[in-house]
Computed example of a mutant assay.
Amino acid sequence: MSTATAERTRPAVFAPWDDPDATPLIEFRGVTKRFGDFTAIDDLTLDIYAKEFFALLGPSGCGKTTMMRMLAGFETPTEGSIHLSGQDIGRVPPNRRAVNMMFQNYALFPHLSVWENIAFGLKREGREKGEIDERVTEMLRLTRLEKFARRKPHQISGGQRQRVALARSLAKAPKLLLLDEPLGALDKKLREETQFELMDIQEKTGTTFVIVTHDQEEAMTVASRVAVMDEGRIVQVATPPVIYEQPASLYVADFIGDVTIIEGTARRAEGGYTVEWAEGQPPLRVRSGLDLAEGARCHVAIRPEKVEIHRNRVEDDNVLKGTVIDIGYLGNLSTYHVRLADGRVVKAQNFNTERDTRQPFTWEDEVWINWTAGCGVLLER
Rank of each mutant, 00 (worst) to 15 (best):
F255V: 00
Y244S: 05
G257N: 15
K147T: 10
E193F: 09
V275N: 03
T205A: 08
G264A: 08
T143K: 08
A171F: 12
I262L: 04
T137N: 14
L186H: 12
V228K: 07
A269N: 03
P247C: 02
E192L: 12
V237E: 11
E197T: 08
R268F: 04
G232S: 07
R267N: 11
E263S: 15
T137P: 04
M220E: 02
P153K: 05
T221L: 03
T221P: 10
L186I: 09
E276Q: 15
G280M: 04
P240W: 15
L183H: 10
P153M: 08
T143H: 06
E276P: 09
A149R: 11
Q155P: 04
A266R: 04
Q246L: 12
L198R: 04
G264R: 05
A171S: 14
L142D: 01
E263L: 06
T265P: 03
T213H: 09
D230V: 10
E218I: 03
M229E: 02
L183N: 11
L176D: 08
L190I: 15
V235I: 01
L198T: 03
W277P: 01
R141L: 00
A278L: 02
T208F: 02
S169D: 07
R135G: 01
E193M: 12
E276T: 14
L190A: 09
S157E: 05
Y273G: 01
R233A: 07
K172Y: 09
V228C: 10
E138W: 12
E270R: 09
R225L: 02
V222K: 06
E192V: 12
R144A: 15
K204Y: 06
A238Y: 11
I262A: 01
G264P: 08
T221H: 10
D258L: 14
A219H: 04
L186C: 11
L190D: 07
R267K: 10
G158C: 03
A238R: 13
M220D: 01
A223W: 05
T137K: 14
P240M: 12
G271E: 14
L176T: 07
V259G: 01
A171D: 12
A165T: 08
S224N: 15
Y251D: 02
I262F: 03
T239F: 05
R191E: 07
L145P: 08
T221M: 06
G232W: 03
Y244P: 07
R135N: 01
K204S: 03
R225D: 04
D215Q: 14
L178F: 11
G184Q: 08
T207W: 08
F196G: 10
L177E: 04
V252L: 00
R161A: 00
A253W: 02
A149C: 01
R144E: 15
I243V: 13
D180C: 09
A269W: 02
T207M: 06
K189F: 01
A167M: 11
Q202R: 14
A248E: 03
Q236P: 07
L190R: 11
L198Q: 05
E270V: 13
L250K: 08
D230G: 04
R268V: 06
E231K: 09
E146H: 01
L166M: 05
L190W: 12
E218A: 03
E197R: 06
T207V: 14
T205E: 13
K204V: 04
